[in-house]
Design a binder for these strands. Sequence first.
DNA 1: CAGTTTCTGAGGTACGTAAATCAGAAAATC
DNA 2: GATTTTCTGATTTACGTACCTCAGAAACTG
Lengths: 341, 341
Amino acid sequence: MKPTVHDIARSAGVSLATVDRVLNGRPGVRHVTRERVEQAISSLGYVRDVAAANLAKGRTYSFVFVLPNYDNSFMIGIRDEVHAAISRSGAERTQIRIVEVPPFDAAALADALNHIVPDRPDGVAFVAVEGLEVHAAVAGLKDAGIAVVTLVSDLPGSERDHFAGIDNHAAGRTAANLLGRFTGGRDGRIAVIAGSMLVRDHRERLEGFLAVMGESFARLDVLPVMEARDNPALTAEVVSAALGRYPDIIGLYSLGAGNRGMLHALREVAREARPVVVAHELTATTRAALSHDLIDAVLNQDAGHEVRSAIRVLKGKVEGLSVIAAQERIRIDIFLKDNMP
Amino acid sequence: MKPTVHDIARSAGVSLATVDRVLNGRPGVRHVTRERVEQAISSLGYVRDVAAANLAKGRTYSFVFVLPNYDNSFMIGIRDEVHAAISRSGAERTQIRIVEVPPFDAAALADALNHIVPDRPDGVAFVAVEGLEVHAAVAGLKDAGIAVVTLVSDLPGSERDHFAGIDNHAAGRTAANLLGRFTGGRDGRIAVIAGSMLVRDHRERLEGFLAVMGESFARLDVLPVMEARDNPALTAEVVSAALGRYPDIIGLYSLGAGNRGMLHALREVAREARPVVVAHELTATTRAALSHDLIDAVLNQDAGHEVRSAIRVLKGKVEGLSVIAAQERIRIDIFLKDNMP
DNA sequence: CAGTTTCTGAGGTACGTAAATCAGAAAATC
DNA sequence: GATTTTCTGATTTACGTACCTCAGAAACTG
């Protein structure tokens, strides 16, 4: 059956201690001996029994999740999922801590990350905000040998090990494709409402959206993006104003988290005059709007999947294991009212 | 830190052996003592360390996957995923065996399931075909204490523990919704091509499709479903004939696995006269067709997710553990050319 | 060649649980 | 009251790995 360290020791003609030294990269093994052991390992197809190893080590992985204390439904969902993971953590030999930081604040985020280093956790997951200080903080974490994963929002060019989130550019393209087709050949204007162009996700979504609009739906006239900082009242106002000013708005793309406000504005429009609406993130709000035909499609990233994936990847990094790539790719879910989960 | 059996023994004032008897339902414990131990377990919040337990037991889970030797891309994908799981199984204390059966053959499937019982595996996953003998076979497996999961195609009303697959009714509804909207207000006919109405998945998809077509898109005239047993040549012929006979076909729903044949027929139609096409399962074929605008949307069930989910659920059943419901729900993925993974 | 350093082997303990054996206590039976 | 049965406790071994100590061998150093 499955070969053990004992089998390797016997096969290589060395003692168990030497095998252990080779396996765990400890010093005190001559080069030739090390090679003999490695030869035996690969020829027997030995794989370390992670469960037994963890038991022996008594190791519990310690991870820190740095999350913005931003109270939109999606971020609340992320926090809930982390808490769910924490409640399961007993059985999974993981200890997870949440650190909250103010949203959209690179300095505060970098500060929080820097403060984590002395605790020497095994891994850190955080929602990235762009900024040189954040890049530096990531480098600091990596220098301390801490695994780093970005969550929801990425930090390309940094030393992070992995990004657990969606391709926002592709999400924007998908939104454009849906909106273009759902408007069904009619001409008209398209309004885009965003939170802030300072946030990478929103910017990327817009880029993708505009690209496809230009390529495939030239008949549609995309209005300049409206930024309303995901604030419900402001969003409602801005959307209302746009709909009033341009009666030929036949499509609306809400790429941020301002859905509540947007819906408020939409309800004031007569049913048959309502534009086609594509929004992001399946929450109680968007779910209800989907079933009442106020929103036509919702693009979603599965918060549970993202959080679980981040944890799996962190564990994998710590153990030096490979991950199942397909399992860790976060999909851009499209929900119509008929395929809501 | 995490309480162990030793802590419980101490807290309940009994020996380790007694705790073990209670934990593993072994006889030889007085009622009052058992209660004292259970009290200690719940008050300390003890959870058994599954890794340590498996190590001690030396247990390896043995599962059997019963799959049709049906060579469409999707089933090949399922088999590949099972093989991938097998190759990982060393590290996961699982031993997985594949049994192949002829497709759409209830008697052969039941026979295969019955033959598995004497091997006494811990769990069985199979692609269901309807039939009384299959229900009986499932009952036989359950009587033998074997966990049973249906994969891709369900067997409602049977004693199976879980279904790892999508809601095909909802998939059909989603297809109708997409097709209805993508045809953009135009009138015309819709053609539906299926494998066989004898297969539950196909039947359910059609039901859902027709329901939404009737509810929301009365302007579209759905032609009687064409069955071509997922045979490429036959499918091509049937689709070609339909497109020739009804020039006003503006939408096509391929709910089975006959995509290759359907695409062959579609390529003979001038680009601008092509209908809107919704198909199932993201394979190399449909993926290419999506990027070349031959297919407009693909509904997909993630084979990898289904297989991994089936294994997780089987393990959970054997261990008497609960599963993360959200993680085990197989989504109906919608892929446009922009959000293909 | 004695002394030092580097390598290797042997052996043990530990992790948390399962499972077995054996002995003693309590309860039931004769 | 002696015997049997049922319950309970104590103790031990095992699973596969990690990690520690100690001793001795081999290889270098001066």
